[in-house]
């Protein structure tokens, strides 16, 4: 019997896993619809958990649903809806009013958008800060810890510019766009990445089309692989402390420390490379040998213009020979030849 191939090793557990998942889920098949189909426990909890002093202005989600049944039907299938169905805090227990504010005035007015204390979206009367405050009342932690004062915050971006709450969990699979997106559990965004980010960062759209690119279009890398759009303490909203730490989290072989180091490499990969895509080989900002010539005004070959057919020009240019340009640990590697 032949040993199992890696593909088999992956596929078989996958299939068995699927079967197990389905069987696991199927244990409850045929039973009556779950409790969510009946009166939502969240609302019951909301009433119970709401601070007594605030009840005067809060009417409870049950009251909201009498008119907004359609919104409730969609909301309950969102992640937020699921969390609020099992509320952990008094705020979550308020249901609709946790985000939209107390509904008494709205109810007494017989409805009307203008009487909703907090509404979201472009036609809201609320400021962006007011809208965001509603979201941040629960979501100020985790990777949003550095939201305040972040570039997107200071440019007046609202959470709902990118996120949508009342969206059912199951979205259509079809990806007809030009970019694939990595698998993600995050279904509360209006578009999948990178399309979402490219709406504003339109120059990046052009760069992602370049011949020399990381696998963005193929859906293996995306904007949030490197950046945190909610703000980070790091430059360019990077996930790691520096550009290099970001790059080296995947390209760990280039991390060193090396015996012979090339200082511009160790300081900033972006000195030579443009990670969003270029038309030059190896994501270089300028092709070789000019990328090296820009700094090396020494003697002999680094200052020669290099004819077209020179070994220092064609193929990989300088790195035809100086192939350890990112750093060498060879005792004879001081010129990055080894």
């Amino acid at each position: 019997m032949k040993p199992a191939t890696p593909l088999q090793l992956i596929a078989l557990p996958l299939i068995l896993g699927c079967a197990a998942v389905l069987a696991f889920a199927g244990a409850g098949a045929g039973q009556p619809a779950n409790k969510e189909a009946g009166p939502a426990p969240a609302q019951e909890k909301a009433k119970a958990a709401a601070p007594a002093g605030a009840d005067g202005d809060y009417v409870g989600s049950d009251t909201c649903i009498t008119c907004h049944e359609d919104q409730q039907r969609r909301f309950k299938n969102t992640i937020m809806g699921k969390v609020m169905a099992n509320s952990r805090t008094p705020l979550e227990a308020r249901g609709c009013e946790a985000c939209h504010g107390p509904g008494k005035a709205h109810v007494e007015a017989g409805g009307g958008k203008e009487t909703i204390p907090v509404r979201f979206g472009r036609d809201s009367k609320n400021s962006v800060a007011e809208q965001n405050d509603a979201c941040l009342s629960c979501h100020a932690r985790g990777n949003r810890l550095f939201w305040k004062g972040s570039p997107h915050d200071s440019r007046g971006m609202a959470c709902v510019d990118c996120h949508q709450v009342k969206q059912e969990l199951h979205v259509a699979l079809s990806s007809d766009g030009r970019y694939n997106a990595p698998l993600s559990e995050n279904r509360g965004v209006k578009k999948s990445q990178p399309e979402l980010c490219l709406q504003c960062h339109q120059m990046r759209r052009a760069q992602l089309q370049r011949s020399s690119h990381m696998p963005y279009r193929e859906g293996k890398v995306t904007c949030t692989s490197c950046h945190n759009p909610h703000g980070s303490p790091n430059p360019k909203q990077l996930l790691q402390s520096t550009t290099n730490e970001n790059c080296l989290s995947c390209h760990t072989e280039r991390r060193g420390p090396f015996l012979w180091e090339h200082p511009p490499v160790m300081e900033n990969c972006a000195n030579c490379h443009e990670p969003h895509g270029t038309s030059n080989p190896q994501l270089l900002k300028v092709r070789m040998p000019r990328v090296c010539d820009s700094c090396h005004v020494a003697t002999r070959h680094p200052t020669q213009a290099q004819p077209l057919g020179s070994i220092k020009n064609f193929n990989r240019g300088c790195t035809n020979c100086h192939s350890a340009i990112h750093g060498s640990n060879h005792p004879s590697g001081d010129k990055f030849l080894r």
Partner: peptide, 20 residues
Amino acid sequence: AALAGIALLLCPAGLFAQEQ
């Protein structure tokens, strides 16, 4: 194997699901 897995997935969801 893939087809078998997919066939499992394609089984009527009602057999497995909680919410019809």
